[in-house]
Design a protein around this nucleic acid. Structure first.
Length: 447
RNA sequence: GCCCUGGUGGUGUAGCCCGGCCUAUCAUACAGGACUGUCACUCCUGUGACUCGGGUUCAAAUCCCGGCCAGGGCGCCA
């Protein structure tokens, strides 16, 4: 009775099969089923080879005309590339076969026949433009190299999540739909919210700060944000994913940088121990990150000055200067480094000032490009109001945010890390679109 | 928002500067055929393309203008 009930609950069973990586020459003679996509078909008259790809690799299915049924041979002969099949047969140890094994089929079941011609070549032998690849992203993602990017992304995020949870952070989710163009800075996408206009969140900034007044002490959020900027470069997307953290009872922004240092270390460790195959496929090398140097904005200016690159104090580094600094730091053996103590004017209103002109802020640079931006935040109500006004924003728009600062707000700080940026730089991808499954940019809304 | 560049079969390209032997190159894919150890199999045969509109010219893939689409840089940011 119990058994019958359990079957009812479970509904069905998965198609029985083994993965390519599990097949070993020692299993010679055993009967197995494999399932996957027909990557290639090589016809040699009386002998036919199928290469069937699954998530871990490729298995060769060998059909000597005289030793398989005519029906199976004909089915194999007619298969189109990328069709989905289940092949049941006897495993043979065979030196001449890839992986040292091949499958002699008793049956080939076609679960899904692929149309032809294919819009791009999933083996990657004939190259395709990024635009074509993104138009047919599902097929593009069948390439092991492309899939590897997203396995690494998953490992990176899993490591980040587990590190943060272990370090006392709790995971939260703040609203994606917000009421006003509150934060300033980036443009927001308007959405229709019943009888009112609302916007898509560009970051969780104000909400994660408000949570610092609750007693959670440390929160993080991994989520998607929307930026309505009309930029069209290899570095920008209109829909991004970020790891955002905020922590209370800090004494300075150095405490925030300490968290990032450990977090980045944990993330790279996670990738190193879970994705060696993927890193090899992508020919990627992980940066050294035990200690991440922290140079001040002023030091950065001086270093650039020595190279004949003079910049006025007070402005954010230009893209060119940022790249040049990346080269200088790389020569000294640092692919990751913080630039801290930016001029107050170059940073958002909630940034804690340091003296007259500076701020308790920082960016984490990775190979000459910003991947994290953070700071100690202002926790005093009066100063915050003053800074909102000084930044040319309207205090009325910040009433609910400001209320959190009126009834007991501890000193706090935090940061946001762009996942696609980080991945792109880590794997040296040529375009940030490659770091998103289905990227959204100025012109791309599909797939 | 400003600036630059490009668009050739399903895919990736050559040709464009300097218009005409372009009936448009090559690879791959696709269709048919030969082949019992392929592994980017090989070989033979075949199908398939000049982004759209206008202009210049005896003649436009090629030069000019505009549209559409795409790529990139700056600013802004992650």
């Amino acid at each position: 009775m119990q058994g019958a009930l359990r079957r009812d609950w479970r509904g069905g069973t998965m198609i029985e099969r083994v993965y390519s990586k599990e097949l070993k020459p020692e299993m010679h003679g055993s009967r197995v089923s494999i399932a996957g996509w027909v990557q290639e078909r090589r016809k040699l008259g009386g002998l036919l080879f199928l290469l069937v790809r699954d998530r871990y690799g490729v298995v060769q299915v060998t059909l000597p005309k005289k030793h398989v049924s005519q029906e199976v041979f004909e089915t194999a002969k007619k298969l189109s590339r990328e069709s989905v099949v289940v092949v049941r047969g006897t495993l043979q140890a065979m030196d001449k076969a890839p992986g040292g094994v091949e499958l002699l089929p008793e049956s080939i079941e076609v679960l899904s026949s692929a149309a032809s011609p294919l819009p791009l070549d999933p083996t990657g032998r004939v190259p395709a433009n990024l635009d074509t690849r993104l138009d047919h992203r599902v097929l593009d993602l069948r390439k092991p190299r492309v899939a590897a990017v997203f396995r690494i992304r998953s490992a990176l995020l899993q490591a980040a999540r587990s590190y943060l949870l272990g370090d006392g952070f709790i995971e939260v989710h703040t609203p994606r739909i917000i009421s006003t163009a509150s934060e300033g800075g980036t443009e927001l996408f308007p959405v229709s919210y019943f009888e009112r206009e609302a916007f898509l969140a560009q970051s969780p900034q104000l909400y994660k700060q408000m949570l610092m007044a609750t007693g959670f002490d440390r929160v993080f959020e991994i989520a998607t944000y929307f930026r309505a900027e009309e930029h069209d470069t290899i570095w920008h997307l209109n829909e991004i994913t970020a790891i955002d953290c905020e922590l209370a009872f800090i004494s300075s922004h150095g405490d925030v940088m300490d968290v990032i240092e450990s977090l980045v270390h944990a993330m790279l460790q996670g990738v190193e121990s879970n994705c060696s195959r993927e890193l090899e496929l992508l020919d990627a090398e992980l940066p050294e990150c035990r200690r991440i140097p922290r140079i001040t904005y002023e030091e950065a200016l001086e270093m650039l000055e020595e190279q004949g690159f003079s910049l006025p104090f007070g402005e954010d580094l230009t893209t060119e200067a940022e790249k040049r600094l990346g080269e200088i730091m790389a020569e000294q053996g640092h692919e990751l480094y913080f630039i801290k103590d930016f001029p107050l004017e170059a940073k958002p209103f909630y940034t804690m000032p340091e003296g007259e002109k500076l701020s308790r802020s920082f960016d984490l640079e990775f190979r000459g490009r910003e991947v994290v931006s953070g700071s100690q935040r202002i926790h005093g109500y009066e100063l915050l109001v003053e800074r909102i006004k000084a930044s040319g924003l309207r205090v009325e728009n910040f009433q609910t945010y400001l209320e959190a600062f009126r009834y007991g707000m501890p000193p706090h700080g935090g940061f946001g890390m762009g996942i696609e940026r980080f991945l792109m730089l880590l794997l040296k991808l040529g375009n940030i679109r490659e770091a998103a499954l289905f990227p959204r940019d100025r012109f791309r809304l599909q797939p």
